[in-house]
Write a protein that binds this DNA or RNA. Structure first.
Lengths: 359, 359
DNA sequence: GCTGGCACTCAAGTGCGAAGAGTGCTAGTG
DNA sequence: CACTAGCACTCTTCGCACTTGAGTGCCAGC
C-alpha cells in the first residue's frame, strides 16, 4: 500500500476538483474530467487505498471523496502548482502599490485588499513593526499653548504620534531644540532605553522623553494587535459557511486582533510561505480554517505578516503564489524606505517605482 | 381609527418584545407580560387596528405581529425611552477613552469597538476629518540622504505623512527651514490653495508643497473612505442572518468604505442622533438593516460620524443612547485637541480627563 | 491489473397527517 | 359601548414513511 504516482495524481485531482466545486468528488467525475483511460471501478479501488492512508475520506457511504487535512498537507507539500500571477496581474498590483507608495500607513491596508480580492478569501495583514521599536527621529509640533504633538519616526519607517500636555507653555524654538536633542540622545533606543535615559533629563525634556517611551511601548504591543483584514464577505459566500453561525468564531478571532497574533507569529519561525491547515491550528476556533502566511519586511528586525484565511477547502496554489508575490513587492517598498545605508536597495527600488517628486 | 394611548402602548410592547425575542409576538404574550388587565381578544382587536394603520404586520394568518418599518419609525419618534447608559458604564467608557487620549488615531477605532460591544451590533466610525482639510503645521524629517518624511498637522488635529524623494540631498537645517517657511505660507490653506501658492516657490520648497497638496487631497478623499467597523460577529449571530448570504451585501458595503459614505453623509444634514430604518435607506442593499448615526467633532468643519448598523429589529433606545453618549465623549476629546483659542473647552476637558504629562 | 455488473447504503426530497399556535369573528355580558 | 369567552379556521411545523438517485464496494471474468 504505497503512494504510487497514479495515486498521487488522483489525490491531486480530488483536491483540485473539490476546491473548485465544493462537492464531494466521485470516481465517475474523475474519470470523465481527468483520467479518461481507466474505468471508474479502477479509480474507486485506488481511492479506497488513499482513504486507507488517511488522505481522503467519505462523508457517508454513498458520497464522493473529500480530502482530509493530511491530504491537503500532502497536496501542498508535493502536488500543488503555485505558479506566479500572470504578468498583467503583476503589473496591476505593482501599479496599485506604486500609487500609495509615499503613504507608509496604507501599505498594509492595500495589501489586505489586494490579497483578499485575488484569492477570494479573507486576508489579514499586520503593519510593519520592529520586533523592538526603536526611535530614529523625534519632532515636536506646537498645537497650541501648552499642547504639543510628539512625532516619532521609528527605525522601521513607521511614524507614531501622541498629543502631550505640557506643564508650561513653550515656543517653537524651544520645541525644536528639545526635538533635536532627544533625536540625538534617544537614537536607536528601545522603550526601556528611553526610560533609562530620561532619568538624566530635566523638566520638559523629561516629559517628552516619557511620551516617546510610551509611543515605543505601544508600538511594541501593537505589533499584532492592529491588523488589517478584508474579504469576510468572500468567506461567507463559501458554501461551508451558508449557516453564518459557523463563521462567527472566525470573524471574532479576526476582530480581536491579539488572537490572530498567535497564528501570525508562526510566520516568524520560518522564512518563505507557510501553510497551516485546519486541525494543525493552535487555536481551537480555527480548526476548520486554513491559513497561508508569510512575513515581509527588511532584515530580521523590521517585519510584518501577510495572511490569507479561509476554509480548508482553499485554492492553496493561488494563495501561496499571491502571498509570495505581494510579500516580494512589499519587501522592495520597505527596503526603499529604510535608512540602512545599503545602496543596493535603492537601486532595486528605483527600478520598480518612480520617485514621488517626479509625479 | 385613531391612535389612542392604548394602541400606542401596544405598539410599544410589540416592538420591545419583538426586539427582545425575535419571534412574532402574539396577543397572548402581550397580555401575559404587559397588559394584564384586559383579555387577549381585546388586544387582538386593537392589534388589528394597528395593522390597518400599517404599523405592524402579519407574516401569515396564524402568526403573531411584527413591526413594520413605519411602526419602528413611530416607535423611535414617540415611544422609545433612550435613557443614558448607567453611571458605571459611563465611567468605564470614559476610562477607556482616557487611556488612549494622547493617541488621536485610535479614537475612532476604540469608538467602534466600544459601540459595537455596547449595542451588540456592528458599529462604523469614520475618523475625524475636516470637510476640507487645511494645513496647520508642516514639518520635514530627514530619513536618509535624499529621502524625507513630510508630516502635516491638519487643522482637525489629525496628522498625515508621506515619504518624499528629493532631487538633491538636504541637511537637517535646510529641512527645518523649509518646514517653517511652508508652515507660515500654507497656513490654513486647502489643497487648491496650497497648489496655487506652490507656484510662487522654488526648487525643493515646491516639491514639498506639492507633497503637502497631495496629503490634503488625500485627506479630503479619505473623509469617508477609511472607516473603522467592528461587530460583524454580533450581527451574524442575529437570527435574521442565520443564512449568511443575507449578510454578504451588508458586509461588502462595510468593506467598501465609500458605499457607507453615502449613508453616513446623512448625519451631516441634521445635528443630534439620526435613525434610518430599513426601506428608508437610499442604498438598495441595506433595505433590511437600520442605522443609528450621529456626527461628532467640533464646530461645523471638523467632524466624524458614529454609526450603529444592524437588522431593523434593533434596540433603538439603547443604540441612540450609546451613540449620543459616545459622540459627547468624543466631542470633549476633540475640543481639547483643537487649537481654537476658546479656553472653555480646556476647562471642560481638564475636568473629564487628566493631563498626559501627569501619567 | 483492469473492468463490467450488481447489490447495498445513505442523503435528500416528497407527500401526508397530526399537533399547535394564533387569529378573526360572533354572540353574549356588565 | 367596550370588553370577553368561545370556537372555527388557517397556516406552520414536525414526524414519518416512502421514493429516488448518487455513489460505493466487491466479485467474477477477461
Amino acid at each position: 500500500m504505497e503512494l504510487t504516482a497514479r495515486r498521487q495524481r488522483l489525490l491531486k485531482h480530488v483536491v483540485e476538483e473539490y476546491v473548485k466545486s465544493a462537492v464531494p468528488v466521485s470516481s465517475e467525475v474523475i474519470v470523465r474530467r481527468y483520467e479518461t483511460d481507466v474505468s471508474s471501478a479502477t479509480v474507486r479501488n485506488e481511492l479506497a487505498q488513499l482513504e486507507e492512508l488517511g488522505l481522503i475520506s467519505h462523508p457517508h457511504t454513498s458520497a464522493g471523496r473529500v480530502p482530509t487535512d493530511p491530504g491537503y498537507r500532502f497536496f501542498v507539500e508535493h502536488l500543488m502548482d503555485a505558479e506566479s500571477p500572470s504578468p498583467g496581474e503583476q503589473r496591476t498590483i505593482r501599479h496599485q502599490f506604486h500609487q500609495v507608495e509615499p503613504d507608509v500607513d496604507r501599505w498594509a491596508h492595500l495589501a489586505s485588499s489586494v490579497l483578499s480580492n485575488a484569492v477570494q478569501n479573507a486576508a489579514v495583514v499586520t503593519p510593519l513593526t520592529s520586533s523592538r521599536a526603536r526611535s530614529r527621529r523625534v519632532a515636536l509640533l506646537g498645537v497650541h499653548d501648552t499642547v504639543a504633538l510628539v512625532t516619532v519616526l521609528l527605525h522601521s519607517g513607521a511614524v507614531r504620534q501622541q498629543i502631550l500636555h505640557l506643564d508650561d507653555s513653550a515656543g517653537r524654538d524651544e520645541l525644536d531644540r528639545i526635538g533635536n536633542k532627544l533625536t540625538a540622545v534617544l537614537d536607536s533606543q528601545t522603550a526601556e532605553g528611553v526610560a533609562r535615559t530620561a532619568d538624566g533629563l530635566s523638566g520638559a525634556e523629561r516629559a517628552v522623553a516619557a511620551a516617546v517611551a510610551r509611543i515605543l511601548e505601544q508600538a511594541d504591543q501593537q505589533a499584532f494587535e492592529e491588523v488589517y483584514y478584508e474579504g469576510v464577505g468572500h468567506v461567507l459566500s463559501q458554501p461551508e459557511f451558508t449557516y453564518s453561525h459557523k463563521a462567527v468564531p472566525l470573524i471574532q478571532a479576526l476582530e480581536r486582533g491579539p488572537m490572530v497574533g498567535q497564528l501570525l507569529s508562526q510566520a516568524f519561525d520560518a522564512s518563505g510561505v507557510h501553510v497551516v491547515i485546519g486541525t494543525e491550528h493552535p487555536l481551537e476556533q480555527m480548526r476548520e480554517t486554513s491559513a497561508v502566511l508569510a512575513r515581509y519586511g527588511h532584515g530580521d528586525d523590521i517585519q510584518g505578516v501577510l495572511c490569507v484565511l479561509g476554509p480548508t477547502r482553499m485554492p492553496y496554489g493561488r494563495a501561496v503564489a499571491m502571498v509570495r508575490f505581494i510579500a516580494h513587492v512589499l519587501d522592495l517598498l520597505v527596503a526603499a524606505s529604510v535608512a540602512d545605508g545599503d545602496p543596493a536597495y535603492h537601486v532595486d527600488h528605483k527600478v520598480g517605482t518612480a520617485d514621488a517628486s517626479t509625479n
